[in-house]
């Protein structure tokens, strides 16, 4: 259910995005950092749904808040001549890996459980015979 919604959102987004007007090159750096922040939020959202502690308010505020904050920090960094966006990328990508690891573990656990269950069933069936 959740993954159908995600895939549907991605497809519709791609279709609309292809026909959207281009933004100017000056702002593409800000959009890039916002994309990274939003991507991190989405992976965080998926991971928390799997862990069953998903909070809509935290998720939505994180999605927009992180994106806007990272844009502001990048802007500040440009004014101060410090590449703050590098720090933002390190943090967001690090968290993305964490969340992906959570998602991976969840599915590996599920998979091994299933296999063990089916093995047990097989063993039971063979012993019955």
């Amino acid at each position: 259910m959740i993954f159908i919604a995600i895939v549907l959102g991605c497809i519709v987004g791609a279709l609309i995005g292809v026909n959207m007007p281009m933004i100017s090159y000056t702002y593409s750096g800000y959009l890039a950092i916002a994309i990274i922040a939003a991507l991190d939020s989405v992976f965080g959202g998926i991971a928390s749904t799997l862990k069953k502690n998903f909070d809509l308010k935290i998720f939505v505020s994180g999605f927009f808040g992180n994106a806007i904050l990272s844009i502001l920090l990048t802007y500040l960094g440009q004014k101060l001549n410090v590449d703050i966006y590098l720090a933002a990328i390190v943090v967001f990508v690090g968290r993305m890996f964490n969340n992906l690891a959570i998602i991976r573990r969840y599915y590996i656990d599920k998979w091994t459980e299933k296999r063990q269950k089916s093995k047990k069933v097989e063993v039971k069936e063979t012993t019955k015979k």
């Binding site: 919604a5 995600i6 549907l8 959102g9 519709v12 994309i35 939003a38 959202g45």
Partner: peptide
């Protein structure tokens, strides 16, 4: 509700990625 929110977020995200 969770599915719809995640879908909308992904929708926004892919639009941004495509534009970029």
């Amino acid at each position: 509700q969770i599915a719809i929110t995640l879908g909308v977020m992904c929708f926004l995200l892919t639009i941004a990625i495509c534009v970029q």
